[in-house]
Structures are given as structure tokens and as C-alpha cells.
Design a protein around this nucleic acid. Structure first.
Length: 611
DNA sequence: GTAGGGTTAG
């Protein structure tokens, strides 16, 4: 074998190994004067791309005397691998401006870049699709599979289906992509139908279906399928499906089931797999079992940014802001680079604990030291931090000048802070803005109505009420789910048909009496109907989380934690009530609502009454 | 040199 051939083959394996090895080989290639010897430059470019050295890849590309389709494709792949889809697209613009005609390899990479850019770039995606359609490569099935995936990521599975139907010979990959596309988009019946039709019912197809269902919030269906998959004797030769099932337990906050899945993970021998451990940390944290989450975290021999972020976010969500920040310092010391998700968790922790200057510093660190461009979520966290702590002017300045468009929840959060800090003037200003956005969340209307009422603006109150009436019909019913291990039990607001109805009501009356002795007065400001005070109090009395807690107190093993998941947010009055109940009954109560975690203990809540 | 299934966000 010649030196060139030897270096070439070493490069191919270097691609899968270390950046260091790739650089060493590059040096040897230059020394041997082979840096322009075909196909070495392209192979080197490919190797740099595969091991994440995007800068080196770009430099190398710029120095190439001749740029063939292989070089372009390799460069685009490098951009995709290092998560720089914008870069890929800007490269493609310069590529097209030179009059270069992309081949099927280049198209596949471009489609992937558009997919990674997400739904805001549908237009670019469709343009690439059109160009591909008109090209001599328009029959290529690989590009078609990536198009199906791209449209799924845009939430447009029907466009993907049209591409799928145009494929002449469907293979395992095209089937899997389409099944996953439907499942991720929440189109479960189409996903099921296709899954029953595919000749490739392999682990990939099962994983695509199950994880797609988890991602679209159909965790229960996903779980049933996982059981079916095990019954069919599909061998779990790699653990990707397990992380999805563990994720389903996390989303549903099913602690008992989560523990069982942890058992399955151990049985199948994947407990030391990095991303499975990450999924387990998240699951235990979301099921409010921070002790177990921390145990898994500590036992891991290798931790990546997801492991650290999961434990930081989990800790912060349970009200332990200082500890979350301490974990971040440890993470930095351990040499792990935080990502955009880490900072959402951190700034949120600061907001929770009122650490304004710390949060501001972190935001600056994120942008200046880590080169992360802030997303709406980051601005929302920062805004939350300012407004909760009473820095209302700074908050208003931020919401009006931030470079991303604030959405309804962002304006609503600012508005509720104005209310809490008693700044009526600003509240009305913000309320007018929110009203113009035509809010969809019923709680926004309650907030607006309260603000206008507080300012004596009765015309606006009635305007809001009218809008609210039309919305009322569309409102999702509130329910709470209690996990007793032997299965979970769902309570709907106002439910009166439960077999244990009398016992539940009896206990609730008893608790109500004791609460009133301790000074409890119902806060009916979250009830939206026009009705008298007594009727409003009756409405509150039947909120689903109270029914679930009462049932839990009656049925759960004495002394154990009561775990409840609610689909909507806990109202202010229920929050007060749950704090009182935790003190009266001396029980810990976890409630995960649509937005936050509440750990009630001894009359207090881990959210510090910020929610 | 191109395509499919996985974990972290309020």
C-alpha cells in the first residue's frame, strides 16, 4: 500500500475517532506533500466534519484549489453535524451563486439543514424541495426520506406523505421516517395504520412509533405499545426506545411506573448507558423524587451537558435555587460547557429566589462567554426575574426592546407582576397590549378582568367578560390525577359521581372547618363567572386537586407522599388550601401542574408562592 | 460525501 493510500484509510477511521488524530494525520499529509493528492483533501474535510472540527473544515475548504460536489457535500455535512444549519444555508447560497448544480448528496444535506432550522424556515425548505424536484436527481429516494423528515419537523406530515407516496421502492428507512413523522405530529391513527402496514416491523419502526407518541404527548399509548413490543419478543438490541418510555413516565409523572421502567433498564443491562441515565434523572426529578435523581446523577461515571442540565433544572424546579447554582459552578469546574437549556434553568432558578444581579450576570455570561444567542425563553426568564423582584421599569423596557417577539404568556407574566406589586398605571398599559394580542388562555382573561376592575375601568371589564364567554366553551376541563402505585385515578373539577363521594366530601368539610379556624378565607378572584360569593366558594371547593388530595388522604399508605398531576395551573386559592392541608394533616403533597412543581410541606410550598 | 428511532427548557 502506498503512503497516500495508507493515510487515506487512516483518515477514514480517524473520522470516527478523535479530533487529535485527524489533526496529526493532517500534519503528516502536509509533510509528505500529499495535501492536494486526490481524494485526500475531501477525505480530510470529511474527517474534520465528523469529529466536530467545523472551523478546521471551513479553513480547509477555503484553501481547496478545486471544489467538487464531494467537497461541498462534506462541508454541509460538517455544518449539520456541528449544529450550524444557518451556516449550511449561507454556504448553499454561495454555492448556488457560483452556478453550481447540487447533486443528490448536496440536496440531502441541504434538506437536513432546513429540517434542523425548524418550522420558522418552512419557506427555505420548500425552496430546496422545489429545486430538487426540478433537478436531474428528483428520483433519489434518500433525498425523499430526508424530505419526509423535514416536513415532519415542520409539523406538516401531509407534505411528507405526498413525498412518501412518490417513492418507487420503499425501504425500511422511508417507512420509519413516515411513521415517526405522523407520530411526532400527533397523528396517531395514521401512524398506527402505517405501522400495521409496514413490512419492516423492526426495532427501528417500534422505536419511531413509541418515541413519536411520547413526543406528541401520547405517553399512555406509547406505553401500551412498548408492552406489545415486549410481547412480540422484539429484542431490545439498543436502548433508544427505553429512553422514550422512561420519558413517558416523566411526562406523566408516573413515579411507580418509572421505577418499574428503571428496573427494566437494569434487567436489559443498560443502566450505565449515558443517555438512559440522563432520561432517568429527568424522570425522577419530574416525579418529584429528587433523592433518586441525585443518586443516579452521582453514580454516573461519565456525565455530559444533558446530565448536568437535567439535575440543575430538576433541583431548581423544586425550589432549591441556591443548590442549582452551586451545581452549575461544579459543572463549570468539571469542564462541561453549558448550553442554551442550562441557562434557561439557571435564570429561572434566580428568578425563583429573587437573585436579580446573579441572573443578569448569567445572561451576560451566556451571550458573551458562551456565544449563545438568547431565545424567547431566555428573555422570558430574564423578564420574569426583573418583574417578580419588582424591577418593573426594567422589565417593561426589556419586553419592548427585546429582539424576539414576546408571546401571550410573556405579557401575561409581566402583567401579573404589575398586579402583585400594585403598579396600576403600568398594569393598564400592559393589559391593553395583551388584550390586543387576542389571548387564548382563559387565565389571561381573568387577569385582565381583575386589572381593569382594580382600575375602575368597568367598560373594559365588560368587554373582557364578553370575550371570555365565547372562549369559555372551548376551555379544557380541569382534572387532577393521583398516582397510588396500583394505578392512577383521575378527578375532574366538580365531579360528584365518585363511589367514595361521601367520604371525600366528609373529609373536605372537616378540613375546611379546620382551615377556617386557622384564618382561611377563600380567594375567589380566580373564578370567572358572574355569581354570588357563596356560589364562587362552592366552585373552588370542587376544584379537582382538592378532590384528588382528599382521596389520597383516604386511600394512600399513611405517611407516604401524595403525588398529584394537574392538567391546568393550580389557582391561588387551592395553593393556599394545599399549604394548610399539608400542615393540618402533617403530610407532604406534591402537585405538578401545567407549569410548575409544588411541594407542600408543613404549611409551605417549594415554589415560594411564586407561580 | 447523502436518509430513519434517544435524553435536558417555562
Amino acid at each position: 500500500m502506498s503512503l497516500a493510500q495508507s493515510l487515506q484509510s487512516q483518515l477514514c477511521s480517524a473520522a470516527r475517532q478523535s479530533p487529535l488524530l485527524a489533526k496529526k494525520l493532517h500534519a503528516q499529509i502536509i509533510k509528505a506533500g500529499l495535501n492536494l493528492h486526490e481524494p485526500i483533501p475531501n477525505t480530510l474535510l470529511n474527517a474534520y466534519g465528523k469529529c466536530g472540527l467545523i472551523q478546521d473544515a471551513l479553513q480547509l475548504f477555503d484553501a481547496l484549489p478545486r471544489r467538487d460536489p464531494v467537497a461541498w457535500a462534506s462541508l454541509l455535512t460538517a455544518c449539520n453535524l456541528s449544529n450550524r444549519p444557518h451556516r449550511a444555508l449561507s454556504i448553499s447560497r454561495s454555492l448556488l451563486s457560483t452556478g453550481f448544480h447540487p447533486d443528490h448528496f448536496v440536496f440531502a444535506s441541504l434538506v437536513k439543514a432546513c429540517a434542523n432550522l425548524g418550522v420558522l424556515h418552512v419557506k427555505q425548505g420548500k425552496q430546496v424541495h422545489a429545486r430538487f424536484f426540478l433537478s436531474p436527481f428528483s428520483d433519489d429516494d434518500v433525498v425523499k426520506s430526508s424530505l419526509i423528515d423535514m416536513y415532519a419537523k415542520f409539523g406538516l406530515p401531509d407534505y411528507g406523505r405526498a413525498v412518501f407516496d412518490s417513492i418507487s421502492s420503499l425501504n425500511s428507512i422511508s417507512w420509519t421516517t413516515m411513521i415517526s413523522g405522523y407520530a411526532r405530529s400527533g397523528r396517531k391513527f395514521e401512524a398506527f395504520r402505517l405501522f400495521r402496514q409496514t413490512p419492516y416491523r423492526n426495532l427501528f419502526a417500534w422505536t419511531a412509533l413509541i418515541s413519536g407518541l411520547v413526543q406528541s404527548g401520547n405517553g399512555v399509548d406509547a406505553f401500551h405499545l412498548f408492552v406489545e413490543m415486549r410481547h412480540e419478543g422484539i429484542s431490545v438490541t439498543d436502548p433508544l426506545v427505553l429512553s422514550s418510555v422512561v420519558g413517558a413516565c416523566a411526562n406523566l409523572a408516573l413515579w411507580e411506573l418509572g421505577k418499574q421502567m428503571h428496573g427494566v433498564v437494569i434487567t436489559l443491562g443498560y443502566e450505565s448507558c449515558l443517555f438512559i441515565s440522563n432520561a432517568l434523572i429527568d424522570m425522577y426529578a419530574k416525579c418529584s423524587d429528587l433523592v433518586a435523581a441525585k443518586y443516579i446523577f452521582c453514580e454516573m461515571c461519565r456525565k455530559d451537558v444533558v446530565s448536568w442540565t437535567s439535575i440543575i433544572v430538576g433541583t431548581a424546579q423544586h425550589g432549591q435555587a441556591e443548590e442549582a447554582l452551586a451545581l452549575y459552578d461544579e459543572m463549570v469546574l468539571a469542564g462541561i460547557k453549558p448550553n442554551e437549556v442550562t441557562f434557561v434553568g439557571l435564570i429561572h432558578a434566580c428568578s425563583h429566589a429573587g437573585l436579580v444581579s446573579k441572573g443578569r450576570t448569567l445572561f451576560r455570561t451566556m451571550v458573551e462567554d458562551h456565544g449563545i444567542s438568547p431565545s424567547l425563553q431566555h428573555y422570558t426568564c430574564l423578564l420574569d426575574l426583573f418583574s417578580r423582584s419588582g424591577h418593573l421599569d426594567e422589565a417593561e423596557n426589556l419586553i419592548r426592546t427585546m429582539p424576539v417577539n414576546p408571546d401571550e404568556p410573556t405579557w401575561a407574566a409581566l402583567l401579573s407582576s404589575c398586579k402583585r406589586h400594585g403598579n396600576t398605571q403600568m398594569a393598564v398599559r400592559i393589559a391593553d397590549h395583551l388584550l390586543n394580542l387576542k389571548p387564548e388562555d382563559p387565565s389571561s382573561y381573568i387577569l385582565l378582568s381583575n386589572i381593569y376592575a382594580g382600575a375602575g375601568m368597568w367598560e373594559d371589564v365588560s368587554k373582557v367578560r364578553k370575550l371570555m364567554m365565547t372562549l369559555e366553551a372551548k376551555k379544557a376541563p380541569g382534572y387532577s390525577c393521583i398516582d397510588l402505585g396500583k394505578g392512577s385515578h383521575v378527578f375532574y373539577a366538580g365531579e360528584t359521581s365518585h363511589p367514595m363521594r361521601d367520604e371525600i366530601i366528609g373529609l373536605m368539610r372537616e378540613l375546611d372547618e379546620e382551615m377556617r379556624k386557622r384564618g382561611y378565607a377563600p380567594d375567589t378572584s380566580s373564578v370567572l363567572h358572574d355569581m354570588d360569593q357563596q356560589e364562587k366558594e362552592r366552585q373552588l371547593f370542587w376544584h379537582s386537586e382538592r378532590l384528588a388530595v382528599a382521596y389520597g388522604l383516604l386511600k394512600a399508605v399513611p405517611g407516604t407522599v401524595i403525588r398529584i398531576v394537574k392538567n391546568l395551573r393550580v389557582c391561588g386559592d387551592c395553593h393556599t388550601v394545599l399549604k394548610l392541608i399539608s400542615a393540618i394533616t402533617n403530610r407532604e403533597i406534591y402537585v405538578r401542574d401545567a407549569k410548575r412543581y409544588h411541594h407542600f410541606k408543613d404549611g409551605n410550598c417549594s415554589c415560594n408562592d411564586f407561580w
